[in-house]
Design a protein around this nucleic acid. Sequence first.
DNA 1: AATCGCGTTTCATATCGTGGAACGTTTTTT
DNA 2: AAAAAACGTTCCACGATATGAAACGCGATT
Lengths: 252, 252
Amino acid sequence: MNSIEKALAVMRALSAPNGPHRLSDLAERAGLARPSVHRILQILVESNYAQARGDGLYAPGLAIRALAGGGDASSDMLSSAEPVLDELQSTTGHTIHFAVRAGDAAVYLAKVEGDKPYQMASRVGMQIPLHCTSIGKAILSALPSSEVAAILERTSELPSAAHRKPDPDLVLRELAEVTRRGYSIDDEENEPNVRCVGAVVRDSTGSVIGGISVSGLALMLSLDQLHELGSVVRAAADEISSRAGYLASGTG
Amino acid sequence: MNSIEKALAVMRALSAPNGPHRLSDLAERAGLARPSVHRILQILVESNYAQARGDGLYAPGLAIRALAGGGDASSDMLSSAEPVLDELQSTTGHTIHFAVRAGDAAVYLAKVEGDKPYQMASRVGMQIPLHCTSIGKAILSALPSSEVAAILERTSELPSAAHRKPDPDLVLRELAEVTRRGYSIDDEENEPNVRCVGAVVRDSTGSVIGGISVSGLALMLSLDQLHELGSVVRAAADEISSRAGYLASGTG
DNA sequence: AATCGCGTTTCATATCGTGGAACGTTTTTT
DNA sequence: AAAAAACGTTCCACGATATGAAACGCGATT
């Protein structure tokens, strides 16, 4: 592990939820020695990528926003997706997410809060796993199975043992089903008491860029309702893909 | 300059406007040798902080959004500021910006498009200089003059010779005027044909965190109108500060 | 056909990062 | 109130790691 990756690990640890962080916690989360984290933080603070509060607490710096401000491959897509997401929200009443793939995870680009009296504990920029979320499964369902296997392999080796090792065969069978019907389901797999339906979003070249989902508390969103929403979600996802320039060529 | 700062410089260069960048351009903008940039990019690509397109072009990676997703000191302020910004937009009809200070520059956190038939060439995350923008001057007006002098010094040494060296005495005199009347003016200084009025925003401790501004094309926003808007902008800025917990204690 | 410019690879050099140990302070425990 | 644990920070000798000149191969340009 080189120093750049270490600095990025510290920045990731900094941007974790729940307020300013203590140096020791950052060191542990980044998997580095405390003196190393201290030195890295000094560099980050100097260039405004981290903020040192008077006490020993550290927070993400404002310059990080400047990095994210530059347009990447997905920022055009985001703006054209927003109206579709809004409409999907008003059609379903539930919370809508739009996430793009980033390596072995997906990152939320947009969230439209539902009109129910609860809020999802998610936020733009948050990373979610691919193998146990509806958006993630939608993404996986559009990848070659060799790549899916590789992702599952790497994911199961991760220190985040929160989610138990998935069985590759089982997952691949479910993904085939997702491909067939055009939408994916997360039945309280990623978060207890939360169910989601998702569908895949493609860019103009036809490659998978991410997915969207409808999420709600399990007590307000039965499995049957999830399946009923499937075609709606899929239609919205296709609309985003087509706005991005993708000419659908298959099952319609 | 250590390797972390170099990597950050590459990331900054990557997030510059105008699409994917060539390696040579990145090297020049970051002030590094091409092989160094190449190696850094490989590391960044591997962790998804940069994207390598098939041809030799590089773009910011999706993982950067994950960094910005974590809450920093200003994200709470942003959500409480948004309604105020929306109202300021509907009151004035012009484009509203909210930016926070990040070192010797300011970074846009929010933008509310005006209802005029043109769009400002700005975007959230964009950095703007402090000495020739209304938000920047509002920020400077609340800093001790020694710090202002230091900022002007560093700013004028920057390679971005686009804006000519500002005269410290002149600037300090203007800033005193800004402090007195409570709003700052940018009369086509930062962008030709664009005029802005700005005011300073403080956090609960009373320290300057950033500012807001009303911007419009010069042909639709005369200098006189700018001065008329001054008190409105200032009131909105004060409202944001007070929502952040700042108890104003002076000229009302 | 010759030249230029670019992305990439290689490699010897020395710079820079590294984490154990230690220090002074603060917080928690007894 | 005293003792102990934990924390942020500093120091430093060691060695891994970053560095950029030079060179290569390729494509575009002349």
